[in-house]
Design a protein around this nucleic acid. Structure first.
Lengths: 193, 193
DNA sequence: TCCGCTACCTGTAGAGCGGTAGGTTTTGTT
DNA sequence: AACAAAACCTACCGCTCTACAGGTAGCGGA
């Protein structure tokens, strides 16, 4: 099957890489990063393991691409985040267990020593906390109805999202993730507009 | 007339096993379960890998022992759990990062397919949710000040504890885990006695 | 048409893994 | 003293893993 389908080499290469990253997401969801073998990822896109290494020279390089993909994915460009959009996000996540599982598994692994994703998650959470603080401040002002500051509420908000994900992944029947998250938002109180 | 003194073979064997389980906890904290090799655990207690296999015939058997150890550890026998005791527990946890890291890493891995700890965590969380529901009901009655039921609050409580642990493990300087947890308890409102 | 580059491949090195087989020393019981 | 069992050991098997080396085939540009 020749490549003459109207696309140039650069585009085809980029597409192949994206395909590989997608397969890596799946395999990591199933086996974690340490458990994910390059061969398993390669097989899923119809390559040999060595063929895959042509696109990503090391396993870590592939992980980096996976993490960048995530960054690109939930970088909502200019949208003014609002709290109720978060609820929708959680609802959306509940329909994409694979992605949630990938990053929940990675987060768990990342707390171990010398894990290649550790720095990524550390920085990411610092950034998300800042981000959420800003969102909360925009919505509530400097004090929430219950007296907490946005700075102190942000870590709780994030913790609830992550923690619910684990409970939900382990037992989706028993845990209504979006519902529980909305409950938490009610706990924060109604913004006084 | 079996074992006459206080230091018989059975006791020594049990001590050795406990020693091994302790070492396994450490290694899992550092590398996760999949990344933890029997040889690394064995070395830590001055054994060869095969010597370790004399006590635990398979790697999974060792994991089972680790999980049982945890169950034994936080099975507070008859103490009536109370909410403020939870805050103390979180404070105590903040002084034992190793144990937290072990089980955070295991929880993360456990969501992957066919992980040997998956069933354990699924059951454990179901049980803990029940437990927390009872605690909340004892403290607040059938309705919390904010209108939520104990059943719906329990998953949130657990989610906050777990989620905060990840943030804290990744960046202890930036996250005041016990403080944040107390903030969450304030969010629940004061019990009306 | 030639040439270089991309996109793969086969082969293999080198290390680490869990687990088995079977031996030997140590220990405790009789 | 005799014996059995527990507590280890050495040796090794078969597998899997990442990564390197080096080759080949086809495409695109000059």
């Amino acid at each position: 099957m020749p490549y003459g389908d109207g696309m140039n080499a650069r585009v085809r290469s980029e597409e192949r890489r994206a395909e590989i990253v997608g397969a890596a997401l799946e395999v990591i969801a199933e086996r974690g990063y340490r458990g994910a073998s390059l061969a398993a990822v390669a097989e899923r896109v119809g390559l040999t393991q060595q063929g895959l290494l042509h696109y990503f020279p090391t396993k870590d390089a592939l992980l980096v691409a996976v993490l960048q993909e995530r960054d690109r994915w939930d970088a909502v460009p200019d949208t003014r985040w609002r709290i109720d959009l978060l609820a929708s996000l959680v609802e959306y996540n509940a329909m994409r267990p694979a992605i949630i599982q990938t990053f929940s598994a990675l987060l768990g692994e990342s707390v171990t020593e010398g894990h290649p994703a550790r720095a990524y998650f550390t920085e990411r959470y610092a950034q998300v906390r800042e981000n959420m603080t800003a969102v909360l401040r925009a919505e509530y002002g400097d004090r929430l109805p219950n007296g907490l500051t946005p700075e102190r509420t942000a870590p709780l908000l994030i913790a609830v999202m992550d923690g619910l994900q684990y409970q939900w992944l382990l037992d989706p029947e028993s845990v209504d993730m979006p519902g529980a998250f909305r409950d938490f938002l009610r706990l924060l109180g109604e913004p006084v507009e």
